[in-house]
Design a protein around this nucleic acid. Structure first.
Length: 917
RNA sequence: GGGCGGUUAGCUCAGGGGUAGAGCACUGCUUUCACACGGCAGGGGUCACAAGUUCAAAUCUUGUACCGCCCACCA
């Protein structure tokens, strides 16, 4: 083995090997453990969020695979309708073309070509992360099979009246010229104005003043509303006003939606361009006056002057014209929530169009019950509240999109405008007995991408066919996802799963946090703070990082600032850390639900951890090389072996428990603690005197065997989180431990063994550690060089101490660099003392220790202990404590106080003796 | 307006009624034959604030402040 751990070397080899051997293949026998990957955008690339999420899913999958479960981690990608179409349209724009020029079929060819070109990117990156997905089962939401599932679901829901078509007010993106769902609207607080306009009463008796944040919509007003109990305006109800500029007579109506205290208490009503006004329009049978074209310019319904103007241009014109007429009462600054599209970031307009909707409430009800009853459990639990909140107020879901890339809606129209829904045109004709000469046109629209994603847990398993894998792996075990798509995806999968599979799609939903940058900001391309996980893995030079962050920007003016920040944050670029270190880092930070602030220093710490493990393995390999581990010789474990096995058993129990509750942070912390401190700092050190200087061949063999077996167990424990380094080391260590098999990933995950618990061994090694700690403190604080051999005297040794000195003397001497260890006798020389229970270890001061230094050391200890004794006594002197606290608490407080008092007395005596010198 | 988080050592985070923990950073010693990406020892926190419950509160209750997120129709 090389002296230094080099991840790039190791990681390059193993993934290809595993994949070639079919190691990730779906299991079909035994208990199912199945995770569906949240399908990333097929043309996208891996970001930190993916890397984090994939680490968790891979750790779970590998853990359960090693547990012997029939695992399936189902991979695949999403066609991401709007996002992908936008990318290709941008490419066309760069070529000076557009999709309309190209036509639908040619445009779709282009998209497929782009998918073929860039679609492998994210799956390659997934491989680099070590993801043990079953690539043979990779799916794409636009595959024939999945498309068939989409059609099937659409047709069935439509037949049941759960999908309907209707002219409704929807959120309209005037750039994309498509409807989007409520969820795709991002409301942003922005500074705007509140304009107050006077609308003259038709009878000439005056005017009412209305307030609006969108003046141009007044062109489509069809009423003015007041609160029915508003004294000020009671007399106006039923009258009409003359809408300025348009010169239309519109009624003054009463509706208790109006807030008397906001603005003037009079609201202009524009049913075709505002969701509330739409509702009110329905209640009062007001006409819907649509004044916008699909690009949000003013249409021919408005007065001629405004036609063709963009909405914002029209806004200024309307304000100017009203002002000229003396009808502008005032303008206030006003902050308002502006709805913007999550893709284009443009202001969306409520717009009246024909769209397809899913009737959500009937589907939501069982989905709510599934979580209430615990058939689906959120981790952490509090996310269920968010889920309930949304589901109980769910609105119908607009599923049609006026774009080209996606699943075409399976509906056909004849020339009379009749709509027929069916699996294909032939079925439609047959079902409705349409004559062959009846011309049918398929609906131009495609479905919302999330419609197909909602079917992912069963469409990927072959539904609507009743496949064996569907029977085996549905419902899946857990969904691992971010909170941002609970509504978009999680809720909808639950609704669709219950509807079409009659069972939940997954039993648990593990909701992880967001990966943020070092200062806590969300990573985004426009902020230039994105870190590509693979740059952490492989490393990247500053120049490459700079060009990555500043090229292809939507806002090139930010490039300089981003470059500057990047130079500050990563003056030397980013060194290579390897996949295993990054994965371990993610695991260590994955405490439930909390966001991760990316911290390169902590990450570097885990790279060091890999190096530590690597070198521990080198040591083990070297030390056991000369022993025949497979020899028939029967050995019995020594005290150190019993100790490390006992500790390891505790670890195994804990790790298994923590997997069950998704506490990867605790798993990582405990593994780190065990490997570094228990195994390397202590057990490897304890093994050295035995193997190097011991004269007991059986003991040496026992030690060698234990080194190998503990290391081999460590590798199995670490493997789900750090697959590469563990596999690499295991290839050498596994056989030494008597294990056979081509890969560590199929070895059994360690399970606890009650017999391994050994309180006596733990007590004895603890005694040894206390003794060594005491001596090292003296060395440290007295500036005695670590290599300087000591002569140590022992005083006040109890019977137990004597036994332990016998038993553990070899290690005490070797690890403490003690050249002689002897009884102190009646009149010991003045010494620095280390106390281990009653026993005292004396390091004679002569020639070694400075009197003042020792006094200072004692002062420090006395002060510290004195405080503790005072606190303990105060507690025990409190009668309420003694009377009311549980007996065992009082008893242990007494015991501890007694020990501390004794130790304090010893220290004071020692201080007095040294002072007297 | 409603809901959910967070506030613990310089930094990143665990802990969650019984005398404060980790990693990194810091200080001193240390290149001894697994590892200097290392070893040994050490310093460092009135656990945001206030009141309450309790023998005992960083931990439970209530309130306050600040930070963050989600949802919501006030024109």
């Amino acid at each position: 083995m090389d002296k230094n751990y080099d991840p790039s070397q190791i990681e390059a080899r193993w993934y290809a090997q595993w994949e070639k051997n079919g190691d990730f293949r779906m299991g079909m026998t035994g208990e199912s453990y199945c995770i569906m990957i949240p399908p990333p955008n097929v043309t996208g690339s891996l970001h930190m969020g993916h890397a984090f999420q994939d680490t968790i899913m891979d750790a779970l999958t590998r853990y359960h695979r090693m547990k012997g479960h029939a695992t399936l981690w189902q991979p695949g990608t999403d066609h991401a309708g709007i996002a992908t179409q936008m990318v290709v349209e941008r490419q066309l724009a760069a070529e000076g073309s557009n999709r309309h020029e190209l036509g639908r079929d040619k445009f779709l060819d282009k998209v497929w070509a782009w998918k073929a070109e860039s679609g492998g990117n994210i799956t390659r990156q997934l491989r680099r992360m070590g993801a043990s997905v079953d690539w043979e089962r990779e799916r794409f939401t636009m595959d024939a099979g999945l498309s068939k599932a989409v059609t099937e679901v659409f047709v069935k829901l439509h037949a049941e009246g759960l999908i309907y078509r209707g002219k409704r007010l929807v959120n309209w993106d005037p750039i994309l010229k498509t409807a989007v769902s409520d969820l795709e609207v991002e409301a942003q607080e922005e500074n705007g104005h509140l304009w107050h306009f006077r609308y003259p009463l038709s009878d000439g008796s005056g005017h009412v003043t209305v307030a609006t944040t969108r003046p141009e919509t007044m062109l489509g007003d069809s009423a003015v509303a007041v609160h029915p109990e508003d004294e000020r305006y009671r007399a106006l109800i039923g009258k009409t006003v003359r809408l300025p500029l348009v010169e239309r007579e519109i009624p003054v109506i009463a509706d208790d939606y109006v807030d008397k205290d906001f603005g003037t208490g009079v609201v202009k009503i524009t049913p075709a361009h505002d969701f509330n006004d739409y509702e009110m329009g329905q209640r009062h049978q007001l006409p819907l006056i649509n004044i916008l074209n699909d690009d949000a310019s003013i249409n021919e319904v408005a007065p001629e002057k405004y036609r063709g103007m963009d909405r914002f241009v029209a806004r200024q014109a309307v304000v100017a014209d009203l002002e000229a007429l003396g009808l502008l009462a005032k303008v206030d600054d006003h902050t308002l929530m502006v709805p913007r599209g999550d893709r284009t970031h443009q202001v969306l307009e409520p717009y009246l169009t024909d769209q397809w909707f899913v009737k959500a409430a009937p589907l939501a009800q069982p989905a709510i019950e599934a979580v209430e009853s615990g058939r689906i459990r959120f981790v952490p639990e509090n996310w269920s509240k968010t889920y309930f909140e949304w589901m109980r107020n769910i609105q119908d879901w607009c599923i049609s999109r006026q774009i080209w890339w996606g699943h075409r809606i399976p509906a056909w129209y004849d020339d009379d405008g009749q709509v027929y829904v069916g699996r294909d045109e032939a079925e439609v004709r047959q079902l409705h007995q349409l004559p062959a000469d009846r011309v049918l046109r398929q609906d131009e629209d495609v479905l919302d991408t999330w419609f197909s994603s909602a079917l992912w847990p069963f469409s990927t398993l072959g539904w609507p066919e009743r496949t064996a894998e569907l029977a085996k792996h549905y419902p899946t075990s857990v969904l691992v996802t971010g909170f941002d798509i609970i509504f978009f995806w999680v809720a909808r999968m639950i609704m669709m799963g219950l509807k079409f599979m009659d069972d939940v799609p997954f039993r648990e939903v593990y909701v992880h946090g967001l990966v943020r940058d070092a200062s806590g900001a969300k990573m985004s391309k426009s902020k230039g703070n994105v870190i590509d996980p693979l740059d952490i893995v492989d490393g990247i030079t500053l120049d490459a990082l700079l060009s990555k962050r500043t090229s292809g920007m939507m806002q090139p003016q930010l490039a300089q600032k981003i470059a500057q920040q990047t130079r500050t944050d990563f003056p030397e670029g980013i060194p290579s850390h390897g996949t295993d270190a990054l994965r371990f880092y993610f695991a260590a930070l994955a405490s439930t639900g909390r966001d991760i602030r990316f911290d390169t220093q902590r990450l570097a710490g885990y790279k060091n951890f890999c190096n530590k493990l690597w070198n521990a393995a080198r040591y083990v390999n070297m030390m056991v090389a000369e022993h025949d581990l497979q020899a028939a010789t029967v050995t019995s474990p020594g005290i150190a072996e019993r100790w490390i096995c006992s500790k390891m058993n505790t670890l195994i129990t804990s790790v298994n428990q923590h997997y069950a509750i998704y506490r990867f942070d605790l798993i990582a912390a405990e593994l780190h603690e065990f490997v570094w401190h228990h195994f390397c700092d202590w057990y490897l050190e304890l093994s050295k005197p035995v193997l190097q200087h011991g004269e007991d061949p059986a003991g040496q063999l026992a030690t060698a065997r234990c080194l190998v077996s503990v290391l081999e167990t460590i590798l199995r424990l670490l493997h789900p989180i750090m697959p590469f380094i563990t596999e690499e080391i295991w290839q050498g260590i596994g056989p030494l431990a008597g294990k056979s098999g081509t890969s560590l990933m199929h070895q059994p995950f360690p399970s606890p063994d009650a017999d391994a618990h050994d309180a006596q061994a733990e007590d004895e090694i603890d005694w040894l550690q206390q003794s060594l700690l005491g001596l090292r403190q003296i060395r440290g604080e007295m500036d005695i060089s670590p290599g300087k051999p000591l002569d140590v005297l022992v005083a006040d040794a109890q019977a137990q101490d004597e036994t332990r000195l016998q038993k553990l003397g070899l290690w005490l001497k070797a690890l403490g660099r003690i050249q002689s260890l002897s009884p102190a006798g009646e009149q010991p020389p003045e010494s620095a003392i280390a106390m281990v229970g009653q026993m005292k270890l004396l390091v004679p001061m002569a020639g070694l220790i400075d009197k003042d230094a020792e006094l200072a050391r004692l002062d420090k200890r006395i002060a510290k202990l004195g405080k503790e004794v005072a606190a303990a006594e105060a507690k025990l002197n409190n009668p309420a404590f003694v009377a009311k606290a549980p007996e065992n608490v009082v008893a242990s407080a007494r015991e501890q106080a007694e020990r501390q008092r004794q130790a304090l007395t010893d220290l004071r005596n020692q201080h007095a003796r040294i002072s007297a010198l």
